[in-house]
Design a protein around this nucleic acid. Structure first.
Lengths: 155, 155
DNA sequence: ATTAGTGCAAATTGTTTGCATGTTT
DNA sequence: AAACATGCAAACAATTTGCACTAAT
């Protein structure tokens, strides 16, 4: 974990930015919530717990910076807010998402399932792919089981 | 085209909504710009050309309604605005998009390239897929050709 | 008459910006 | 002191809402 911070620090430096205390606090929150899909506001509140002086604008600026450096990906699931998702280290491509329309959960698929599809797209549409976004909307395994077994809170 | 309007009218009726003149004007604009990815504001301005009395709020409400009825899909390419994309009639799944990071163009792929991927996701993640969003970011064939042949405006 | 739908303006929300202040070299 | 970074408040932009009015059954 420390090394993760260290490596992000390198990335910032090589783009001639500094890892200020505020930026570090923000990065740490992102690392501690790697599984989540936090909005800027979410990040702000979490950072504030440990570093109460931080301003929302700084969080926005930091997230923008990290997006630019491809440390995080800015995503949008259709509710009004942008969410920020830490890239797995060394991940060639952005992971996929499963959004449950029942419970709102968002799970991640790390495996790259698009290799074949991308080959087709590159060839047939002559499109040089740099990145992708793939999100499935549906019913997650948790809600699915609920449907079958117990209908406790069905209404 | 007329029949398209007619069928959307049916859909509205069966959900007990009416096809008011404002709604019809909005639907017609969407039909006339099927290839585009219009924002609410875009739609508003286009509708206004023919029906100057219409209000922006009505356009928003109509687009929301059409989204709910799955006549259109609300999409978001990461710039700050929602865009509205008419579903192809009878399309089982939402089409895919190619967003060019050079020229900003957005092309559509109507073919469903995800059948195999979806089978894997449904089986391995026990996730019942209802819909998907797939967008590739990269260089479109137009900008690609530019790179190879003439570097007129390369800087 | 009742209900659904509209237009306008005001309100709300997420995000960005200007600027005076603080920090680091 | 120069350059960069921060916090705050104000500005902004997209979208939503309240409400008086209209249209249609």
């Amino acid at each position: 974990m420390e090394s993760r911070v260290e490596r992000i620090k390198q990335q910032l430096h090589s783009a001639s930015y500094k890892l200020t205390p505020q930026r570090e606090a923000t990065v740490r929150v992102l690392l501690e919530h790697e599984e989540d899909h936090l909005s800027a506001e979410d990040v702000y509140l979490l950072v504030k717990e440990k570093s109460p002086e931080i301003g929302l604008a700084t969080v926005y600026r930091t997230l923008e910076l990290l997006t630019e450096l491809k440390v995080v990906d800015k995503i949008n699931f259709g509710d009004g807010v942008s969410r920020y998702d830490l890239r797995k280290e060394g991940a060639a491509h952005f992971h996929h998402h499963l959004v449950c329309i029942e419970c709102g959960s968002v799970d991640e698929i790390q495996e790259d399932l698009l290799e074949d599809v991308e080959e087709i797209v590159e060839k047939q549409w002559k499109f040089k792919i740099k990145d992708h976004r793939l999100t499935f909307h549906g019913i997650c395994y948790r809600c699915h089981d609920d449907d079958d077994q117990n209908n406790d809170d069905a209404n």
